[in-house]
Simulated assay, not measured.
Amino acid sequence: MQIITDLLPVILFFIAYKKAGIFAATAVAMISTLLLIGVIWLKRGKIDKMLAINGAVITVLGGITLLLHDKTYIMWKPTAIYWIGALALLFSRYAFKRNLIERMLGKMMTPPAATWDKLNLYWIAFLIGMGILNLYVAFHYSEDDWVNFKLFGATSLMFIFMIVQVFALRAHWVEQNQPPA
């Protein structure tokens, strides 16, 4: 369910782009993200931090895109999100001594501390790389190629990255009905 809600604004952006262009798609992404935040807040009474950050980034960069009628700003949006995520992982680990990856996955797996640190660094590197790749595609390929990459390429790379981790860490997964050792 979480994956669907995370991808919904991207899918709606893609559909709107194909039907009406980049500026209509930007407006749709902004509205759908803010509506999603509102619905989740009404259902749960709280909003995930990354969704709130995504809402803020899409509102600011999407708003600038529409105000200036310049697609450059919306094309920076995925990179901004990736790099904010990388910075959050980096600062939480080294400034606050908290590994966010461990906090998210700690109930599902029990690798040694060094493995958590490596996993955190892999995510930081991956997110930085995804930000660079987004900018490369955005400014070296057509707008249509970038929109297709945003939905299909970036999403596929994210899933592949996660699947590789699942297989690499399968020995550390905790059985659902057993308490962690």
Rank of each mutant, 00 (worst) to 15 (best):
T65R: 00
K49F: 15
G62K: 04
Y73W: 08
F13L: 12
K19R: 14
T79V: 05
I37A: 09
I84S: 10
L68I: 05
G63D: 08
Y94H: 11
I101F: 13
Y82A: 04
M50G: 11
F91C: 12
F13S: 07
L87Q: 02
A16M: 04
K77C: 13
I101G: 09
L12Q: 11
N99F: 03
A29F: 10
Y73N: 01
T33H: 01
S32T: 12
M75T: 09
I74F: 09
I53D: 13
V39N: 01
F14P: 02
I47N: 01
T72M: 09
G38P: 03
Y17K: 01
R44S: 15
I15H: 11
A25W: 02
A86W: 00
D70Y: 07
L36I: 11
L42Q: 15
L12P: 12
Y17L: 00
D70A: 08
Y94M: 05
G63K: 09
G38S: 09
M30L: 11
F96M: 08
T79A: 11
W83Y: 03
I81Y: 04
Y17N: 07
D48F: 04
A80Q: 03
L61C: 07
I22Q: 05
F14G: 11
L68N: 07
A27N: 04
K77R: 15
A16E: 04
I31K: 13
T79W: 01
I84G: 07
Y17P: 00
A24H: 05
W41V: 14
I22K: 02
Y94T: 05
N99S: 01
T79N: 01
A56S: 15
G55C: 10
S32L: 09
Y17C: 01
H69F: 06
V57R: 06
S32Q: 10
V60N: 09
R44W: 06
F14N: 08
T79Q: 01
L51Q: 03
F91E: 05
F91L: 15
G38K: 07
T33P: 02
V28M: 03
L12V: 13
V60F: 02
N54K: 05
I15Q: 04
T26K: 01
A95L: 14
K97D: 09
